[in-house]
Protein backbone atom coordinates (compact mmCIF):
# COMPACT_ATOMS: atom_id res chain seq x y z
CA UNK A 1 0.00 0.00 0.00
CA UNK A 2 1.31 3.41 -0.81
CA UNK A 3 0.20 6.41 1.11
CA UNK A 4 -0.37 9.57 -0.80
CA UNK A 5 1.56 12.33 0.88
CA UNK A 6 2.43 15.46 -1.02
CA UNK A 7 6.17 15.31 -1.69
CA UNK A 8 8.42 18.26 -0.86
CA UNK A 9 8.27 19.02 -4.54
CA UNK A 10 4.50 19.27 -4.55
CA UNK A 11 4.70 21.39 -1.46
CA UNK A 12 7.12 23.66 -3.30
CA UNK A 13 4.34 24.34 -5.75
CA UNK A 14 2.13 25.65 -2.98
CA UNK A 15 1.89 29.38 -3.29
CA UNK A 16 4.10 31.40 -1.00
CA UNK A 17 2.06 32.15 2.07
CA UNK A 18 0.22 28.81 2.05
CA UNK A 19 -0.59 27.59 5.55
CA UNK A 20 1.69 24.74 6.61
CA UNK A 21 0.83 24.50 10.30
CA UNK A 22 -2.38 25.06 12.23
CA UNK A 23 -3.17 24.27 15.86
CA UNK A 24 -6.61 24.82 17.30
CA UNK A 25 -7.82 24.67 20.87
CA UNK A 26 -4.82 22.77 22.22
CA UNK A 27 -5.23 21.74 25.84
CA UNK A 28 -2.81 19.64 27.84
CA UNK A 29 -2.56 18.70 31.49
CA UNK A 30 -0.05 16.60 33.40
CA UNK A 31 -1.26 14.98 36.59
CA UNK A 32 -4.22 17.31 36.72
CA UNK A 33 -1.93 20.32 36.33
CA UNK A 34 -3.01 22.41 33.36
CA UNK A 35 -0.04 23.29 31.14
CA UNK A 36 -1.82 24.48 28.00
CA UNK A 37 -5.40 25.69 28.10
CA UNK A 38 -6.57 26.46 24.61
CA UNK A 39 -3.73 27.37 22.24
CA UNK A 40 -4.43 28.49 18.67
CA UNK A 41 -1.50 28.96 16.29
CA UNK A 42 -0.85 29.00 12.61
CA UNK A 43 2.16 29.34 10.35
CA UNK A 44 2.53 30.14 6.69
CA UNK A 45 5.22 28.92 4.36
CA UNK A 46 8.41 30.91 4.90
CA UNK A 47 7.06 32.62 8.00
CA UNK A 48 8.83 32.70 11.39
CA UNK A 49 6.75 32.45 14.54
CA UNK A 50 8.42 32.98 17.89
CA UNK A 51 6.94 31.50 21.05
CA UNK A 52 8.11 33.21 24.21
CA UNK A 53 7.23 32.61 27.78
CA UNK A 54 8.79 31.93 31.11
CA UNK A 55 10.48 28.74 32.06
CA UNK A 56 7.77 26.16 32.71
CA UNK A 57 5.13 28.05 30.76
CA UNK A 58 4.63 25.09 28.43
CA UNK A 59 6.68 26.10 25.38
CA UNK A 60 8.41 22.76 24.88
CA UNK A 61 5.14 20.94 25.53
CA UNK A 62 3.52 23.09 22.88
CA UNK A 63 6.32 22.32 20.37
CA UNK A 64 6.10 18.61 21.06
CA UNK A 65 2.39 18.68 20.39
CA UNK A 66 2.87 20.65 17.16
CA UNK A 67 5.40 18.07 15.96
CA UNK A 68 3.11 15.17 16.81
CA UNK A 69 5.47 13.84 19.51
CA UNK A 70 2.84 14.30 22.13
CA UNK A 71 -0.95 14.12 22.00
CA UNK A 72 -3.00 17.03 23.23
CA UNK A 73 -5.90 16.24 25.57
CA UNK A 74 -8.07 18.37 23.35
CA UNK A 75 -7.69 20.26 20.12
CA UNK A 76 -6.15 19.51 16.74
CA UNK A 77 -2.91 20.05 14.87
CA UNK A 78 -2.63 20.12 11.09
CA UNK A 79 0.80 19.85 9.49
CA UNK A 80 0.90 20.52 5.76
CA UNK A 81 -2.85 20.18 5.80
CA UNK A 82 -2.85 16.72 7.38
CA UNK A 83 -4.38 16.04 10.81
CA UNK A 84 -1.56 14.92 13.11
CA UNK A 85 -2.58 12.03 15.35
CA UNK A 86 -5.40 11.03 13.01
CA UNK A 87 -3.32 9.68 10.15
CA UNK A 88 -1.67 6.27 9.87
CA UNK A 89 1.83 5.94 11.34
CA UNK A 90 3.27 5.46 7.88
CA UNK A 91 1.85 8.71 6.65
CA UNK A 92 3.07 10.44 9.80
CA UNK A 93 6.58 9.16 9.08
CA UNK A 94 6.41 10.63 5.62
CA UNK A 95 5.24 13.89 7.14
CA UNK A 96 8.16 13.83 9.59
CA UNK A 97 10.62 14.05 6.73
CA UNK A 98 9.17 17.41 5.86
CA UNK A 99 10.13 19.12 9.09
CA UNK A 100 13.32 19.35 11.12
CA UNK A 101 13.92 19.92 14.80
CA UNK A 102 16.73 21.84 16.47
CA UNK A 103 17.08 21.07 20.14
CA UNK A 104 18.84 22.94 22.86
CA UNK A 105 22.66 22.62 22.53
CA UNK A 106 22.37 20.58 19.38
CA UNK A 107 21.49 17.24 20.99
CA UNK A 108 24.22 15.52 18.99
CA UNK A 109 25.16 11.87 19.37
CA UNK A 110 28.49 12.03 21.14
CA UNK A 111 29.82 8.79 19.70
CA UNK A 112 29.43 10.01 16.11
CA UNK A 113 31.54 12.51 14.15
CA UNK A 114 30.06 15.79 13.00
CA UNK A 115 29.56 14.35 9.51
CA UNK A 116 27.85 11.21 10.80
CA UNK A 117 25.53 13.28 12.98
CA UNK A 118 24.42 15.32 9.98
CA UNK A 119 24.14 12.19 7.83
CA UNK A 120 21.91 10.42 10.35
CA UNK A 121 18.49 11.40 8.95
CA UNK A 122 19.70 10.80 5.39
CA UNK A 123 20.87 7.28 6.27
CA UNK A 124 17.75 6.48 8.23
CA UNK A 125 15.11 7.90 5.96
CA UNK A 126 16.39 7.84 2.39
CA UNK A 127 17.86 5.35 -0.04
CA UNK A 128 20.57 7.73 -1.19
CA UNK A 129 23.98 6.19 -1.65
CA UNK A 130 26.87 6.98 0.64
CA UNK A 131 28.75 9.19 -1.83
CA UNK A 132 25.72 11.38 -2.43
CA UNK A 133 25.05 11.56 1.30
CA UNK A 134 28.61 12.74 1.91
CA UNK A 135 28.13 15.58 -0.57
CA UNK A 136 24.83 16.62 1.02
CA UNK A 137 26.55 16.64 4.42
CA UNK A 138 29.19 19.02 3.05
CA UNK A 139 26.51 21.25 1.53
CA UNK A 140 24.68 21.47 4.85
CA UNK A 141 27.84 22.07 6.88
CA UNK A 142 28.75 24.79 4.40
CA UNK A 143 25.34 26.35 4.97
CA UNK A 144 26.04 26.68 8.70
CA UNK A 145 29.67 27.75 8.20
CA UNK A 146 31.27 24.52 9.42
CA UNK A 147 32.67 22.97 6.29
CA UNK A 148 35.97 21.32 7.18
CA UNK A 149 34.83 20.14 10.61
CA UNK A 150 33.39 16.84 9.36
CA UNK A 151 35.77 14.60 11.27
CA UNK A 152 35.56 16.25 14.68
CA UNK A 153 33.68 14.65 17.56
CA UNK A 154 30.98 16.62 19.38
CA UNK A 155 33.17 16.78 22.52
CA UNK A 156 35.69 18.82 20.51
CA UNK A 157 33.13 21.50 19.63
CA UNK A 158 32.06 24.68 21.37
CA UNK A 159 28.40 25.12 22.30
CA UNK A 160 27.78 27.35 19.32
CA UNK A 161 29.39 24.88 16.94
CA UNK A 162 27.31 22.03 18.34
CA UNK A 163 24.21 24.09 17.83
CA UNK A 164 25.18 24.77 14.22
CA UNK A 165 25.81 21.07 13.61
CA UNK A 166 22.34 20.46 15.06
CA UNK A 167 20.94 22.94 12.56
CA UNK A 168 22.84 21.30 9.69
CA UNK A 169 21.35 17.96 10.74
CA UNK A 170 17.86 19.47 10.90
CA UNK A 171 18.41 20.78 7.36
CA UNK A 172 19.62 17.46 5.98
CA UNK A 173 16.34 16.43 4.39
CA UNK A 174 15.55 19.90 2.98
CA UNK A 175 12.66 20.48 5.37
CA UNK A 176 9.90 22.96 4.67
CA UNK A 177 9.47 23.65 8.35
CA UNK A 178 11.92 23.86 11.26
CA UNK A 179 11.16 23.78 14.96
CA UNK A 180 13.77 25.32 17.24
CA UNK A 181 13.64 24.81 21.01
CA UNK A 182 15.77 27.49 22.64
CA UNK A 183 18.46 27.46 19.98
CA UNK A 184 20.56 30.14 21.68
CA UNK A 185 20.34 29.13 25.31
CA UNK A 186 23.72 28.83 26.96
CA UNK A 187 25.51 30.71 24.18
CA UNK A 188 27.49 33.92 24.51
CA UNK A 189 26.13 37.08 22.85
CA UNK A 190 28.32 36.74 19.77
CA UNK A 191 27.35 33.14 19.18
CA UNK A 192 23.73 34.04 19.87
CA UNK A 193 23.97 36.62 17.10
CA UNK A 194 25.49 34.05 14.74
CA UNK A 195 22.68 31.56 15.38
CA UNK A 196 20.08 34.33 15.10
CA UNK A 197 21.43 35.29 11.70
CA UNK A 198 21.46 31.67 10.62
CA UNK A 199 17.79 31.26 11.56
CA UNK A 200 16.98 34.32 9.48
CA UNK A 201 19.03 33.13 6.50
CA UNK A 202 17.30 29.74 6.57
CA UNK A 203 13.90 31.36 6.78
CA UNK A 204 14.72 33.49 3.74
CA UNK A 205 15.08 30.27 1.75
CA UNK A 206 11.36 29.79 2.26
CA UNK A 207 11.56 27.43 5.23
CA UNK A 208 8.87 28.05 7.85
CA UNK A 209 10.14 28.32 11.42
CA UNK A 210 8.70 28.00 14.89
CA UNK A 211 11.24 29.28 17.41
CA UNK A 212 10.98 28.95 21.15
CA UNK A 213 13.33 31.36 22.82
CA UNK A 214 13.99 33.28 25.99
CA UNK A 215 16.30 35.68 24.25
CA UNK A 216 14.23 38.78 23.51
CA UNK A 217 16.78 40.35 21.19
CA UNK A 218 17.03 37.21 19.13
CA UNK A 219 13.23 36.78 19.21
CA UNK A 220 12.60 40.26 17.86
CA UNK A 221 15.28 39.80 15.20
CA UNK A 222 13.96 36.57 13.71
CA UNK A 223 10.20 36.84 14.16
CA UNK A 224 7.55 37.78 11.68
CA UNK A 225 5.11 37.22 14.53
CA UNK A 226 5.53 36.56 18.25
CA UNK A 227 3.20 34.99 20.75
CA UNK A 228 3.61 35.02 24.48
CA UNK A 229 2.54 32.04 26.56
CA UNK A 230 1.48 32.66 30.11
CA UNK A 231 -0.42 30.37 32.45
CA UNK A 232 -1.22 28.06 29.56
CA UNK A 233 -2.64 30.72 27.30
CA UNK A 234 -1.46 33.05 24.59
CA UNK A 235 -1.69 36.39 26.33
CA UNK A 236 -0.12 38.51 23.62
CA UNK A 237 0.50 38.23 19.93
CA UNK A 238 1.98 40.65 17.43
CA UNK A 239 4.74 41.66 15.06
CA UNK A 240 8.10 42.64 16.55
CA UNK A 241 7.12 46.31 16.24
CA UNK A 242 3.81 45.72 18.01
CA UNK A 243 5.51 43.75 20.78
CA UNK A 244 8.17 46.44 21.22
CA UNK A 245 5.50 49.12 21.48
CA UNK A 246 3.02 47.29 23.69
CA UNK A 247 2.06 48.64 27.09
CA UNK A 248 0.76 45.25 28.25
CA UNK A 249 2.55 44.86 31.60
CA UNK A 250 3.01 41.09 31.21
CA UNK A 251 4.76 41.53 27.90
CA UNK A 252 6.70 44.58 29.08
CA UNK A 253 8.12 42.66 32.00
CA UNK A 254 9.31 39.96 29.62
CA UNK A 255 10.62 42.32 26.95
CA UNK A 256 12.41 44.49 29.48
CA UNK A 257 13.67 41.47 31.44
CA UNK A 258 12.59 42.81 34.80
CA UNK A 259 12.11 40.79 37.98
CA UNK A 260 9.25 42.95 39.17
CA UNK A 261 5.92 42.96 37.41
CA UNK A 262 2.71 41.02 37.16
CA UNK A 263 4.50 37.72 36.48
CA UNK A 264 4.94 36.11 39.90
CA UNK A 265 8.26 34.40 40.59
CA UNK A 266 6.46 31.68 42.46
CA UNK A 267 5.79 28.80 40.11
CA UNK A 268 5.27 25.99 42.59
CA UNK A 269 2.20 23.93 41.91
CA UNK A 270 1.41 23.48 45.54
CA UNK A 271 1.92 25.51 48.60
CA UNK A 272 4.81 24.38 50.80
CA UNK A 273 2.76 24.39 53.96
CA UNK A 274 -0.01 22.45 52.36
CA UNK A 275 2.49 19.96 51.00
CA UNK A 276 4.25 19.46 54.33
CA UNK A 277 1.10 19.24 56.32
CA UNK A 278 -0.88 17.33 53.73
CA UNK A 279 0.73 14.10 54.91
CA UNK A 280 1.96 13.06 51.37
Amino acid sequence: MTVKVPSPAEQEKLPAGAEILRAEGIRKSYDGHRVLSGIDLSLRKGETLVIMGRSGSGKTTCLRILMGQERPDEGSVHLFGRPVGRIPAKEMNALRRRFGVVFQSGALLNSLTVADNVALPLRELTKLDEKVIRIIVKMKLDQVGLLGFEHLMPAQLSGGMKQRVGIARALALDPELLFYDEPTSGLDPVMTAVITKLIRDISRLGVGSVVVTHDMKSALAVADRLVMLYMGEIVAEGTPDEIRATQDPLVRQFVDGRAEGPIPLQTARVDLLEDLLGGG
Binding site: K13, V132, M139, K140
Partner: peptide, 17 residues
Amino acid sequence: VPFMDSSGIATLVQTLK
Protein backbone atom coordinates in the same frame (compact mmCIF):
# COMPACT_ATOMS: atom_id res chain seq x y z
CA VAL B 1 12.39 19.21 -14.12
CA PRO B 2 10.14 21.53 -12.11
CA PHE B 3 11.96 20.98 -8.82
CA MET B 4 15.27 19.68 -7.54
CA ASP B 5 16.42 19.39 -3.93
CA SER B 6 19.85 18.98 -2.29
CA SER B 7 19.94 15.28 -3.11
CA GLY B 8 19.53 16.10 -6.80
CA ILE B 9 22.31 18.67 -6.67
CA ALA B 10 24.53 16.23 -4.78
CA THR B 11 23.84 13.59 -7.43
CA LEU B 12 24.99 15.98 -10.16
CA VAL B 13 28.10 16.86 -8.17
CA GLN B 14 28.96 13.19 -7.64
CA THR B 15 28.58 12.55 -11.38
CA LEU B 16 31.02 15.36 -12.07
CA LYS B 17 33.44 13.96 -9.49
